[in-house]
Design a protein around this nucleic acid. Structure first.
Lengths: 221, 221
DNA sequence: AGAATAGTGTCTGTCAGACAGTATCGC
DNA sequence: GCGATACTGTCTGACAGACACTATTCT
């Protein structure tokens, strides 16, 4: 077994699943039910199954489905972690993905094959994580931030329809810095990634807000 | 054998080694000496050897050393490619790296274990490539461009000392668009990544140019 | 009217492209 | 002087932050 691992490394996928809740970027942690690192907090992950997975991306999708019954729209590679010491089972490769869960789908998350679930502050998870997952989490947060910084809007973290203020709060939560309302809105008069639904919010005790959605041709983050 | 591959995928690393020659971004291609895909052009690559490689990065370094006797300063992950069909040997993972070779080290490249070497235009290699290497090359070019675009200067493609004009020509070759000389230079009065050597070029039949080098604290691309 | 949030108009400083002009070498 | 390349100064338009202003709802 360990001899075979010398020739064929263990390959697993780990997923940093993000959401924005209470104006804070949060990541889903699971408490592991099995060895190794049983009872420790970790990113949801699993071993690649070449006979079942068409690709690493497909494996990540399967892991999310199996562990928390979630199908995400946005799932992308961050980077690979590798070496002999990062997993006690031997030389291993951990392919890290990040995924974004819209705020209105937080309740879709179900617990399977793990002891516990928690939405933790992505920048200060509050638990010591198993394996090299603390490092992986930092890399995933950096990847998401970089995309938002370079104008890839975090539309997949919002419901299908949203107001510009909601979009701004979400960006602010990810980058942890405030934006000027006027400048922020100005960027969308030109940005083809958004379009108005024509409708407005109702029932608030203030002026109604215009409701937007991602453009039909939209496929970016 | 193929049964084992079902459980443990083949893991290999491929490297897009870039240089800038004749004001053109070029990539090193090798003509494969062994099966599979014998006699076809490809990016230099090799199978991961967990018993010898401390990490995937280390494997990429070994491949470059074995195939072309080159030790590069800059080597970084691009992304992983995976699936059952990209390599005829079965379900496989190909970890793609890119590396940069300074112009003054082009002659250090030696041919080992391959039939032929060629510095090909990175955007139009002129050969049909083995495996999924055409797709990998496109991804690697995009990664390098993105880094140069976001102000990560391609200092590792230049000799240790260089003039601002050389730097500008190199950036232009990678991004394939001209820069305004004045604006380009202005960016370095502020950029701490560069410092002057105090010396100037000699022997040209024109005004001598100031010679720069990367700052001592430099570690970026 | 007042609170609350949505949304706009305008000023201003910064910065990048454009481009003309100057500097310094070999011949 | 002339050709060639290095380097600088200045104008200008685009744009982003700042911030005050208006708009529309509910109570």
């Amino acid at each position: 077994m360990s001899q075979r691992r010398q020739l064929y490394p263990l390959v697993s996928v780990d997923v940093a699943l993000f959401c924005v809740e209470d104006n804070q970027l949060k990541v889903l942690l699971v408490k592991r039910a099995t060895e190794p690192e049983q009872h420790r907090w970790a990113l949801p992950g699993g071993v690649l199954q070449p006979e079942n997975d068409a690709s690493l991306l497909d494996a990540a999708r399967r892991v999310l489905d199996e562990k928390i019954s979630v199908k995400v729209r946005h799932l992308a590679q961050v980077m690979a972690f590798s070496g002999a010491t990062r997993d006690p089972r031997g030389w291993s490769i951990g392919m890290l993905f990040y995924a974004l869960l819209p705020r209105d789908q937080l309740n879709a998350v179900e617990r399977h094959k793990v002891e516990q679930l928690e939405w933790a502050n992505a920048e200060a998870p509050g638990h010591r994580l198993a394996f090299d997952h603390a490092e992986q989490l930092r890399a995933a947060v950096a990847a998401v931030r970089q995309r938002v910084e370079s104008d890839q809007l975090p539309l997949h973290l919002l419901p299908a329809e949203f107001t510009l203020t909601e979009l701004q709060r979400t960006c602010e939560a990810i980058l942890r810095k405030p934006f000027d309302k006027s400048a922020f809105r100005r960027r969308f008069k030109e940005n083809p990634g958004l379009e108005s639904t024509g409708r407005r919010t109702e029932g608030g005790r203030q002026r109604p807000a215009e409701i937007f959605r991602a453009s039909s041709s939209f496929s970016r983050e």
